[in-house]
């Protein structure tokens, strides 16, 4: 029994990581039609900025409030890079979908190489508060605190995103834009401002995933975002592009499936099952679980 609980909670921890990456990808894709390969870079920037801040930024550190400051710095850095990417690289190619994807591909290659050039290719130990290394006993299962932290963070982000989409003017514009971007402009709204906003939000969420994921794994390396990104893409497709709620459901399904099958089957089999799930969903519902609709 305790094994099942442990697997469920670690699976949810993984799901939390996927959700943080996928929610931004999904919104960016749903609204702006940009398949953002550079999203993994935002994650890397978040992780390295947190790592740097913990060691160098006054007031920040590896423990207590200092760690919170470091993570906030990392999230802001990820968000800032995302905004910069949107304004400088994506916006001039507005509505030229393929070129935009190509630019993010180039950016993901060059960006990771830049991280590698600056901090080396090898994984570095990540500063983390002492309590995140401990475990908490949940119904007899010894669950790592770092995993629980991820789950809580993802839940908070999910709640905040839904509230933002439902109750704010920009949330309304984003929901409408996911459905029919052209019609939003035909109502006199400059939808490109909303693009910048979803990049900022997506960058922040990915950077948070980078920082907290590094706490979970204990190390940070330049290529970290790459492998996560592929599963996040799968989550986005299964959940339906543009749907935050769909991403959350799909992340949970993928995380749990992966964790359980990898444990009870051979290692790696869970990853394969996830792709199998993707194929099944696509054959049954080509538009994904939630379709191209931003549900609030």
């Amino acid at each position: 029994m305790s094994t099942v609980i442990l697997l469920t909670l670690t699976g949810l921890g993984l799901a939390a990581l996927y959700f943080l990456v996928a929610s931004g990808l999904s919104l960016v894709f749903g609204l702006a039609d940009v398949l953002n390969f550079a999203h993994g870079l935002f994650l890397g920037v978040g992780a390295y900025a947190t790592w740097w801040a913990a060691g160098n930024l006054p007031g920040a550190g590896a423990d207590g409030l200092g760690f919170v400051v470091a993570v906030v710095f990392g999230v802001l850095a990820g968000s800032a890079v995302a905004v910069l990417v949107e304004l400088v690289l994506i916006r001039p190619l507005y509505s030229r979908t393929i070129e935009q994807v190509l630019v993010t591909v180039g950016l993901s290659l060059a960006g990771v190489a830049l991280l590698q050039a600056t901090w080396g290719a090898d994984a570095r130990p990540f500063p983390r508060p002492g309590w995140t290394r401990d475990v908490t006993s949940v119904l007899g299962a010894q669950v790592p605190n770092a995993g629980l932290l991820l789950i809580v963070a993802a839940a908070v982000v999910l709640g905040a995103l839904l509230a933002f989409l439902r109750f704010t003017r920009y949330g309304l514009i984003i929901r409408a834009g996911v459905e029919n971007r052209e019609m939003v402009t035909a109502l006199g709204i400059d939808v490109r401002k909303a693009f910048t906003l979803v990049f900022a939000i997506g960058g922040a969420a990915a950077a948070l995933a980078g920082a907290l994921g590094s706490v979970y794994f204990g190390t940070v390396s330049p290529g970290q975002g790459g492998s996560l990104l592929i599963f996040a893409f799968i989550v986005v497709v299964i959940g339906g592009m543009g749907s935050v709620v769909g991403s959350a459901y799909a992340a949970v399904a993928v995380g749990l499936l992966q964790q359980f099958v990898n444990y009870y089957g051979t290692s790696g089999l869970g990853d394969l099952c996830v792709v199998g799930l993707l194929a099944v969903v696509l054959l049954l519902r080509p538009q994904g679980l939630a379709g191209k609709v931003a549900h609030a």
Partner: peptide, 24 residues
């Protein structure tokens, strides 16, 4: 000029097939 500016300057557009936002 971009569409949203034209619309703000007083060019109202009601598209074919209504194009209301179905989920809203």
């Amino acid at each position: 000029r971009p569409t949203h500016r034209l619309v703000r300057d007083g060019l109202g557009y009601v598209p074919e097939d209504r194009c209301v936002f179905a989920a809203l």
